[in-house]
Amino acid sequence: MHRLIADRSLDDSWLGVDDARAAYRDMVRARRFDDRALALQRRGWMSGYPPFRGQEAAQVGAAHAMRDDDWLVPTYRSNALQLALGVPMSDLLLFRRGHPEFHSNHDYRVLPQAVPIATQLPHAVGLGMARNYRGNDEAALVCFGDGATSEGDTHEAMNFAGVFDAPTVFFCENNGWAISHPRDRQTASATIAEKARAYGFEGVQVDGNDPLAVREVVTDALASARDGDPVLVEALTYRQGAHTTADDPDRYRPADPDLPEWRRRDPLDRYETFLREAGVVDDEFVAATRERADEELAAAVATAEDEPSADRDELFEHVYGAPTQALDAQREAAARHPPDGSH
């Protein structure tokens, strides 16, 4: 099913002005965060970072579709989604500096970021199945990229969701590349959305550079999931930068990608233009939004820098219920190689 909602007006949407502005604020916050985090990593402030520039509309739109009692199961590139759901910027920065992921100890319905590809999908289905056992009205939204659809975990998760009617929305951000592999090297299917047919539920393709379209589609998908009908949402977007700061996309990606015009356009610029033309934002609103985002970010960086360095022993504390011989050996090896390189 295709729902590429690229041309619209606010009159066509059930969203009001306040919701449209809120989505813009969160997209600006996400863009400022991403740009600053990338700059911080480049000067050694953190060891690595996965940029998401270009995917803000998909993530913010999905976050604004979720209810307070829904669960988010993120991947490592889901920072915009987490920010829009209220996770502090400082938590995300501290995580990249080696601290526990939810440093502020706030009560979020957000699972830890999954770095191994697709391992989080079965967890999301497990959350959904648990909801069925408990009889409440929650749903789980799990995020992954197009490359994750090549992993066995994806098949297993979707198969279980279809068989057991798990209230799960599979949110695939198809940004065109799985590290250095284009989508057509990942699958021979015409779309990722159509893969849902094999598992007995609906697949929907949406313009991932339109936050209003994504919110509309994901809202419907979550409602369907709560009724026992999982949904696969394929959000078409584009990763503007590198896969991570250890990647050089110039080595494999053409400078002039052969993509539809709507997909090449920057989602933040596109959405701001739309809101300006609709009379929803003006120069004053845009400037104030950027200023507030920068102030929030400066405070988050200061909070992260004020925090003492993470205790490396904490890495080994919660891996198993009781330490294993191999884990003890790894702990001893780490102690012999301090972070500053001294011995």
Rank of each mutant, 00 (worst) to 15 (best):
M46A: 13
Q240G: 10
D69A: 15
G145E: 00
F102S: 03
V280Q: 11
D35A: 12
A225P: 02
S9R: 09
T219G: 08
A148P: 10
G176M: 11
H123A: 13
H123L: 13
L232W: 10
G147Q: 10
F201D: 05
R270S: 15
G162E: 05
A310W: 02
D250T: 15
H106V: 04
P51C: 05
L141V: 15
D34H: 03
S309W: 00
Y252A: 09
E296R: 00
T303K: 14
G98C: 05
L327G: 04
H343N: 05
A161S: 00
A333I: 01
C143N: 13
T191H: 08
V115I: 09
R43E: 15
T289Y: 01
A235L: 12
L94H: 04
S180T: 14
R36Y: 00
L212Q: 11
A221R: 13
V17F: 09
D11H: 14
D258N: 15
V233Y: 08
D153H: 12
M1R: 14
V115T: 12
R3W: 13
R96S: 02
L232K: 15
M89E: 08
D258Q: 00
T303I: 07
V60Q: 02
G162P: 14
A118Y: 09
A6R: 14
D256M: 12
V28Y: 04
Q82C: 15
E277T: 10
L268S: 10
D210L: 06
P116E: 00
V115K: 01
L141N: 14
A140M: 07
P167A: 02
I179T: 11
D146M: 13
L275V: 03
R331K: 02
A278P: 03
L141I: 15
V28S: 06
F170A: 09
N175G: 14
A140F: 14
R290L: 03
N132A: 07
V169Q: 12
E101F: 10
D34Y: 03
Q82W: 01
L93E: 00
E296F: 04
D282N: 14
G241P: 03
S180P: 08
G241D: 08
C172K: 12
S47D: 02
A130F: 13
L141W: 07
A293N: 00
R264G: 12
P51G: 05
